[in-house]
Amino acid sequence: MTRRVHEVMTRNPVTVERLTSLAEAARVMRDADIGDVLVVEEGRLRGILTDRDLVVRGLAEDRDPAETTVQAICSTEPLTVGPDDHVDEAVDLMRRHALRRLPVQTGSGELVGIVTLGDLEVERDPGSPLASIAAAAAAEEAARGR
């Protein structure tokens, strides 16, 4: 039986408002020990910001992290999947668009999770190196009470 996205996704994704500074977004990522945050406006998904975005689109372009907002450099209109979509659909979407993560939204637009390459690798091959890394990170996160 094919699994659904909600069975493998990370629930309660970390979000920041679109007018959050790059410096604050970086602190949020550091404190949550994650490499991305979802950018929202009034609770609606507006983009995704990765640690790579901070470096390549922010620091490397000499933007002031205290003055530049995440909306200035985040990827806008990210592709999403639904919680009841098949995992195979998420894998196909990630493969076709060379993505490492997909926000998960309900049909009404409620942001309910994020599915990552690590989540999918744990599903596909629990013994793979990527799955081991993802499982260790999840265990560490659980130990910290997240």
Rank of each mutant, 00 (worst) to 15 (best):
A136N: 05
V39K: 01
Q71D: 15
L45C: 07
T68Y: 15
R52I: 11
A131D: 11
D85G: 04
A138D: 10
H97P: 00
G107C: 06
A136W: 08
E7M: 03
D53G: 10
T10E: 03
I133T: 11
G107V: 08
G35V: 14
P65R: 05
V8M: 02
Q105Y: 04
R4F: 05
A32W: 15
D62W: 09
V104C: 04
P126K: 09
A136I: 02
L117W: 04
A72I: 11
V112T: 08
E24W: 09
H97W: 12
V115F: 13
I73F: 08
G113V: 02
L111D: 00
V112P: 00
M1V: 09
G127N: 12
A136M: 11
D33C: 07
R63Y: 01
M94Q: 04
D51M: 09
R3K: 11
D31C: 04
P103T: 03
V16F: 04
P126A: 10
A136C: 03
P78Y: 07
V55L: 15
H86P: 04
A138W: 02
D31N: 15
A136Q: 13
L120Q: 07
Q71S: 15
M94H: 06
T76E: 15
R52W: 11
I133R: 12
L54R: 01
T116Y: 06
R144C: 05
G127I: 03
A26G: 04
M9I: 02
I48R: 06
R46K: 15
P126C: 08
G127T: 14
L38G: 03
S75Y: 06
E141T: 13
L120K: 07
P83L: 09
E121N: 04
R100F: 12
E121M: 14
V87P: 00
